[in-house]
Design a protein around this nucleic acid. Structure first.
Length: 466
DNA sequence: GGAACTCGCCAC
DNA sequence: AAACGTGGCGAGTTCC
């Protein structure tokens, strides 16, 4: 590997970076304190209602009886003790690999299919929204503005972190909680919020290191579809069509439970568990008429049985073959690169990133591969963040950067500047960045979401950049 | 009464 | 042979 660490360059990136991030911290983001107060109150009422209903159940009364006092539904330990020791329910999931500690997390409780546990899960979800987010917003705000910190000195991959409050883990996937929490955050009066994120940035950065020809082809040809190809292979589908909703689910399953975990260093057995969750098949022998349905209504269990996969164990064996094919044939050069970098680390005691950072100290195989990719991917974002900050200052624009989430920038946009902001964002991220970082070897693309004037962070919608 | 830990859960 | 990368944070818990 021919990498020239340039520590002066790395230093400059972080020096300029922390100044730009500091300006974003100072700028802050408006929060609606009245909304936060009302939302907290409503959540508390909902929580009390569910708790009240829970208290009427014989399940809870039993728990109360054996715990000499008030059972603490917020204690996973007490809940596990009641479920698995007192009620003697067979655990469906464990925290530890030795299967000594039964789990009481979301998935474990859902598997037990008890209505009382679903009530506890609802309470957990609402408390999380209220206490971790809304409560923290209220506590951390200064004169109606939040000023999350963005750190460059805390993360072993040379990524960033954020705290007080953490701006990088605000709910997004659960639509209900997303709206509840993000409705607290607003642009400055008369402005609008915009978020711009890189598409599959870490994959694009990884390919700059390993130069795998198959991966290069996937990333350079817009019509190709890596996740679709993997879905077709994993689920043995000949006529895969990513526009069919049933196939879209299989594609998401392949993407989120095979491809990405494999890139992070996971292996086929965990993949099998994750994939079965998506297609709703059990960890046992499969019967006909089980799981999700394919286009035309055929059950996936029937389809897989026809293909010779009759059980979870059979599926594991199948995935083991796919994993081997994945690294030894499909992405052979990528696989070889992993081995080479790991071997070089054992000799040198360090590994370097393209952005001039050196990773030293004890690292396991997965960390050796992941750190330079994860770090450099973030450095692409940080470089763009710095350029944008500089640009807005030089031009005297009113638009400001207010935050960053690893591969995404968040802007507080003055509506009259929207068009020119969009253009410069697109230019810096897709044209200037690859020119500055010559090692980037595939086109980078960004996607934007935009909120209405005075609209909350929950109201962002897709916005095609001009 | 606080430090340090576990567990669970939110993001990329 | 073994087996998911990086964080922050709240509540419960244990230890000093």
């Amino acid at each position: 590997m021919t990498i020239n660490p340039n520590t002066a360059e790395a230093y400059k990136l972080f020096h300029d970076g922390i100044l730009a991030l500091g300006r974003a911290e100072q700028q802050g983001m408006r929060i609606d304190l009245d909304y936060v107060g009302e939302a907290k109150e409503k959540l508390t009422k909902r929580i009390l209602k569910i708790e009240h209903d829970l208290h009427q159940t014989s399940f809870f009364k039993h728990w109360q009886h054996i715990s000499k006092g008030k059972p603490n539904i917020g204690s996973p330990l007490q809940l596990a003790n009641f479920l698995y020791n007192v009620k003697n329910i067979t655990p469906q999931k464990y925290i530890d690999k030795e299967k000594k500690k039964p789990s009481s997390d979301d998935e474990a409780l859902k598997l037990l299919q008890l209505p009382e546990l679903d009530m506890i899960l609802s309470i957990r979800k609402l408390k999380k929204a209220r206490d971790t987010y809304l409560e923290a917003f209220e506590r951390e705000q200064v004169k109606g503005y939040l000023h999350p910190f963005f750190n460059l000195h805390t993360v072993s991959t040379y990524r960033s972190s954020s705290d007080s409050p953490n701006f990088q883990n605000i709910p997004k996937r659960d639509k209900e909680v997303m709206k509840l929490v993000r409705d607290a955050i607003y642009p400055r009066p008369g402005h609008q919020l915009m978020a711009v994120d890189f598409s599959k940035l870490e994959v694009c950065i990884a390919v700059a290191y390993h130069h795998d020809p198959t991966m290069l082809k996937y990333l350079r040809s817009p019509s190709s579809d890596m996740h679709g190809d993997m879905a077709a292979q994993i689920f043995k589908i000949d006529d895969f069509n990513k526009h069919l909703p049933e196939h879209k689910l299989l594609r998401n399953a392949a993407k989120n439970s095979f491809v990405f975990p494999q890139f992070y260093g996971d292996y086929y057995q965990n993949n099998a568990i994750g994939l079965c969750r998506w297609i709703e098949l059990p960890h046992t022998a499969w019967k006909t008429g089980q799981g999700v349905q394919l286009p035309g209504g055929k059950y996936i269990s029937n389809h897989l049985k026809e293909q010779g996969i009759n059980s979870f164990d059979g599926f594991c064996t199948h995935l083991q073959e796919i994993e081997s094919d994945f690294w030894k044939r499909r992405f052979k050069v990528y696989g070889k690169w992993k081995e080479k970098v790991q071997a070089e680390y054992l000799v040198n005691g360090y590994v370097d990133s393209y952005t001039g950072f050196r990773f030293k100290g004890e690292m396991n195989k997965k960390e050796i591969i992941n750190y330079p990719v994860q770090g450099a991917a973030f450095h692409c974002l940080l470089w763009c963040f710095i350029q944008l900050d500089k640009f807005f200052a030089e031009k005297g624009w009113k638009t400001r950067l207010i935050g960053q989430i690893h591969d995404e920038v968040v802007l507080d946009v003055a509506p009259e500047e929207l068009l020119k902001v969009s253009k410069i964002v697109k230019r810096i991220t897709t044209v200037d960045l690859p020119r500055a970082f010559k090692w980037i070897n595939v086109p980078l693309s960004v996607a934007a979401d935009l909120g209405p004037v005075d609209g909350s962070w929950a109201s962002l919608e897709e916005y095609p950049l001009p």
